[in-house]
């Protein structure tokens, strides 16, 4: 089976500044992977490059074996902040947008997810709290059937209950062969659901390791991640 993600020798510059250099990353099917790195390490940029919305990079990016941007967009689902919609837009109208433009959007699954998240279909975007909006974004993202899901900091700034709901929805609705990449700048809340961690430091991937292998060395995933940034402080 083709890997959901294969990146080779990726370089990305903006404003004469290197943001990503010589990055290589391969993700296998059926995994939940955390993309870790401090703020500004380039996690969002990497996800935008994979999704084909960040331009003018060098290197190769393959999503489910596809290199063309339009094909990549068709085989991945990225948590988008829904900035394309006016604040007065109702959830139902956003769903219509998804139904028309994404042929893999599954309405039944969305409705299950929406019920699970306790969101009413006639709510407007302006009426949603930060946690509710993030839940909606997750519900929309998971209602598509794709090989790769990219969740960009889905837990930032939301309360513990919403966080738990989102984590449970990840376990419940993940298809067997699809892979989920979750970016975050800290890791403790989600370690139990992760297969692997990928750590970004110095503009590139500096470590990719299975969580159970980390634990087998009697180290917690959090300690493991922090050790990469502590080393820098000591130097």
């Amino acid at each position: 089976m083709t890997n959901p993600l294969e990146i080779t020798d990726l370089v990305y510059k903006k404003n004469q500044k290197k943001i990503i250099t010589d990055l290589n990353l391969t993700l296998k099917p059926g995994k939940i992977v955390a993309l870790l790195g401090e703020n500004g390490a380039g996690k969002t940029t990497l996800m935008r490059i994979i999704s084909g919305v960040a331009k003018n990079y060098r290197g190769s990016v393959k999503v489910a074996g596809f290199t063309k941007e339009a094909d990549r967009k068709g085989h991945l689902s990225f948590t988008d902040g829904l900035t394309g919609f006016a604040n007065s837009t109702k959830i139902n109208d956003i769903v219509k947008f998804y139904q028309i433009l994404y042929h893999d959007f599954n309405l039944k699954q969305f409705e299950q997810l929406r019920d699970f998240m306790n969101l009413k279909p006639d709510l407007r975007l302006s009426e949603l709290s930060k946690g509710m909006k993030e839940k909606l974004v997750i519900a929309l993202t998971f209602s598509r059937r794709v090989d790769l899901y990219l969740l960009d900091e889905p837990f930032s700034g939301i309360d513990a209950m919403a966080r738990k709901k989102i984590i449970k929805s990840i376990i419940l609705w993940k298809q067997e062969k699809s892979t989920i990449l979750i970016s975050d700048h800290f890791v403790n809340e989600i370690t139990a659901v992760l297969d692997e961690v990928v750590i970004i430091k110095n503009k590139t991937v500096c470590m990719q390791k299975s969580t159970e292998a980390i634990r087998a060395d009697n180290q917690s995933v959090e300690e493991f991640y922090e050790s990469f940034y502590q080393r820098e402080e000591e130097e």
Binding site: I32, K168, I171, V193
Partner: peptide, 17 residues
Amino acid sequence: VRELAVQLTVNVNTVQR
């Protein structure tokens, strides 16, 4: 497997193992 994973909030692959 999935029920256990949700109940324990852990990865499905880990439960499988």
